[in-house]
Amino acid sequence: MEAGIVGLPNVGKSTLFNALTCSRAAQSENYPFCTIEPNEGIVSVPDDRLSRITHYITPQKTIPAMLKLVDIAGIVKGASEGQGLGNKFLSHIRQVDAIVQVVRCFEDPDVTHVSGSVDPLSDIDTIETELMLADIQTLENSLAKAQRSARSGDKEAKLRVSAIEKCNEHLANDQPLRTLKLPEAEADAISSYGLMTAKPVLYVANVDENDLQGDDPLVRKVREYAESSGASVVCVCAKLEAEIAELEEPDRSEMLSDLGLTEPALNQIAREAYRTLGLQSYFTAGEKEVRAWPVPIGATAPQAAGVIHSDFERGFIRVEIYSLDDLENYKSEKEIRQAGKLRIEGKAYIMQDGDICHFLFNV
């Protein structure tokens, strides 16, 4: 699972990406098309439950869940028609599972805005429009072939035609496909299209360093828009976060304290991007390692086991589970077992966020 960071040129997108991945590479120049190939990075997802577990189970190492991010070059109006190498960049968005859109919510005469003025809602509309136009092209290009196959009696093709027609009608009403609920069979029939407006979105309001809480009217507009569309917003000063990311401890902690922050805002982005991807964490805990594992919300126990290794899923027998609350109450796994709090679950069990697990398998 991976998220793509998108935005118009010069909104702070690459600065944010570099800070998230703690990259010390030179920042891009102040030009609209500065990044051609997407940069990829892996970031950890901060989770205080790891430290709470290791208070009682001391491992050789602690491993957080990881999130893959892709920095996609700035999109401009006309991208769906190839402007600014738009088709190349849009193809990168098709490959990610969620979109993190950075919108600029600060004025700076030294940083040119590609549209000539700072208007985050206009920025959001520009990108949404380009993605919708690109999705329309994808659907129109696929419809004729699907119709031919449907006429020959192909059941999956019939599902595909129905899904395409519903999507086209939805897009014709200027509605992104993430707000359209298709029957599961129809959604599966067009899943290979990589429709961009069907992907979940997280908005990142890039704010001035004097507005870290996002009180500016520009940010309020983004929050209202996101709320109306069921999305989340994280406020961050990308420039400031990049400076914080470059610091070593304890200088980093001192700077955060001076700013009145308990953690970098980047931590919030990582957690919200993780949630936007529809992921939750379960844990394995032992002397070798305490580790958080990402798993889709709604995954079964065998599917969760498969995240560790495919053999675990193939040969799944059962899973032993206890909670962090039980660990903090009984102080050790041994005491949890003796108190009868260790649960035994089978193949039908739906994983819960925060489960601490031992998988039993045989292949």
Results as ranks from 00 to 15, higher is better:
residue 45 V to T: 09
residue 32 P to D: 01
residue 79 A to V: 00
residue 57 I to H: 06
residue 51 S to M: 13
residue 66 M to F: 14
residue 34 C to F: 02
residue 38 P to A: 07
residue 66 M to G: 11
residue 62 T to R: 11
residue 69 L to R: 09
residue 53 I to C: 10
residue 56 Y to V: 04
residue 79 A to F: 07
residue 76 V to D: 05
residue 76 V to I: 14
residue 38 P to C: 01
residue 61 K to W: 07
residue 73 A to I: 01
residue 54 T to V: 14
residue 32 P to V: 04
residue 35 T to R: 00
residue 52 R to H: 04
residue 68 K to W: 05
residue 80 S to L: 00
residue 39 N to H: 10
residue 76 V to Y: 01
residue 65 A to Q: 11
residue 55 H to P: 00
residue 83 Q to V: 10
residue 62 T to D: 10
residue 35 T to G: 02
residue 53 I to M: 11
residue 84 G to P: 09
residue 43 V to N: 11
residue 71 D to K: 03
residue 77 K to I: 02
residue 76 V to F: 00
residue 82 G to C: 01
residue 53 I to D: 11
residue 75 I to Q: 00
residue 69 L to D: 09
residue 68 K to Q: 14
residue 80 S to E: 07
residue 72 I to H: 01
residue 68 K to H: 13
residue 51 S to W: 10
residue 71 D to N: 05
residue 31 Y to P: 03
residue 63 I to G: 05
residue 53 I to V: 10
residue 79 A to H: 00
residue 73 A to H: 02
residue 84 G to F: 03
residue 58 T to M: 12
residue 49 R to E: 10
residue 61 K to Q: 15
residue 64 P to N: 06
residue 75 I to R: 03
residue 36 I to C: 07
residue 56 Y to H: 15
residue 50 L to Y: 08
residue 74 G to L: 02
residue 56 Y to D: 05
residue 66 M to Y: 14
residue 55 H to V: 04
residue 59 P to I: 00
residue 72 I to W: 02
residue 85 L to Y: 11
residue 54 T to H: 06
residue 62 T to H: 06
residue 45 V to D: 04
residue 59 P to R: 08
residue 72 I to K: 05
residue 74 G to I: 02
residue 64 P to A: 06
residue 68 K to C: 12
residue 71 D to S: 03
residue 77 K to R: 15
residue 50 L to Q: 08
residue 32 P to E: 01
residue 33 F to C: 02
residue 50 L to N: 09
residue 70 V to A: 15
residue 36 I to L: 08
residue 38 P to T: 05
residue 84 G to Y: 05
residue 69 L to T: 02
residue 63 I to S: 13
residue 67 L to K: 02
residue 47 D to Y: 12
residue 82 G to E: 00
residue 53 I to P: 09
residue 40 E to V: 13
residue 58 T to S: 14
residue 74 G to C: 00
residue 50 L to T: 09
residue 37 E to C: 09
residue 65 A to H: 11
residue 33 F to I: 03
residue 32 P to H: 04
residue 78 G to K: 02
residue 43 V to Q: 12
residue 56 Y to T: 03
residue 48 D to G: 14
residue 52 R to W: 06
residue 64 P to I: 02
residue 60 Q to R: 15
residue 42 I to R: 13
residue 40 E to R: 13
residue 38 P to G: 08
residue 45 V to S: 10
residue 44 S to N: 13
residue 44 S to D: 14
residue 50 L to P: 11
residue 37 E to P: 05
residue 69 L to E: 03
